[in-house]
Design a protein around this nucleic acid. Structure first.
Lengths: 190, 190
DNA sequence: CAAACACTATACCGATCGGTATGGTCTCGC
DNA sequence: GCGAGACCATACCGATCGGTATAGTGTTTG
């Protein structure tokens, strides 16, 4: 177990994701990283700063993946499926990061510097809405692009949560396709 | 400020919802309830038991409302809208309870007696799926009732979260109708 | 060789936590 | 009138927390 900033960040991410901010002690993080407390406070001035660095990293990681997948080619349906599935793949590949972000969004128990995850979400929605808007302008679709984007984000989030909590395989490409098809074609007969 | 069990429960709900389990101290709860620590430990044996009592109450509250709304009459579309909006109304009427439940679901930081909110969710899904199943059996709808129920629950949860975090009026009957219509009719033109 | 850096090991600080002990004061039902 | 329950006020316990102080070690860089 080598020391160094990287080892601290990795251990901290894991423990924060596991226990949340308040219940994760610096002692435990140090032990898991194979270093001592003065070393932690040498690299990061405080627990809060360490946490903040992790939050920024995690958001950047997922946003980068989304940007890449949104530039993909293909017809509308395929693009929507690809964007959704790309997110699934990232979540499946790095469940610790997902859990970490969830905990941070849903537990404001500390007076942290208020990282603006709402704005981050809005940017994602705008990106998705752009894809829908193209479909509407080309005459393929009808409706409000932002509302469609919201619906897809909702289903996506729900699937990720379901996977996280039950361990069920809800993050497959097939599931992504089902979501998109439901959104496109609805469920009324005929 | 009268004492009593009710006052403790009310104050505890508010403070747990505000700060999460770990960061909410018994001292603060006692102060808010206008009682002293021995009184709290007189009524509830421990912080954990107090919390557990609140969780059970909150789940029962929302589940009761859902059961009532699911028995409503009308055509399929109206019933779906009513069920969805009933949930919105409950969430709007008691945002503290919603926040409390969210914090409890997303913060396992304590070794609590593992209240089974997954099973609770599954029961809700089954209830919603029943409504969709009727529509499928009568020939009105096509698709998997469980999947449709999941989609509606996802949109519903997302709207509640959006309302909670941004304060936007996302919990209207109109919004409920939009969700149901999207689910029924999709978004492809023609 | 010396200064700077990246630590280690240990021990401590003040604050806060959940929970309890002590000892008293009301108000009720029997 | 008397005991039981529902508290009050205060003070304390041991544990744990974030963070720091002290003193020393090995490596790198000029």
């Amino acid at each position: 177990m080598p020391g160094g900033k990287a080892a601290i960040l990795e251990a901290a991410m894991r423990i924060f994701a596991d226990k949340g901010y308040a219940a994760a002690s610096t002692r435990e993080i140090c032990e898991a990283a194979g270093i001592t407390k003065p070393a932690l406070y040498h690299h990061f001035g405080s627990k809060e700063q360490l946490f903040h660095e992790l939050v920024i990293d995690a958001f950047a990681y997922f946003h980068k993946g989304l940007l890449r997948s949104a530039r993909a080619q293909g017809n509308l349906r395929e693009r929507l499926i690809n964007v959704t599935f790309a997110d699934f793949r990232a979540a499946r590949k790095d469940p610790v990061r997902v859990l970490f972000l969830l905990r941070m969004v849903f537990s404001p128990e500390e007076r942290r510097p208020h990282f603006n995850y709402i704005e981050q979400m809005e940017r994602e929605r705008e990106l998705l809405a752009g894809v829908f808007r193209e479909g509407i302008e080309s005459g393929e679709l009808r409706g409000d692009p932002k509302r469609l984007a919201t619906a897809l984000m909702a289903m996506r989030l729900f699937a990720i949560l379901e996977n996280l909590f039950t361990g069920r395989a809800t993050l497959t490409r097939r599931r992504a396709a089902e979501m998109v098809d439901l959104l496109l074609e609805g469920s009324v007969s005929g």
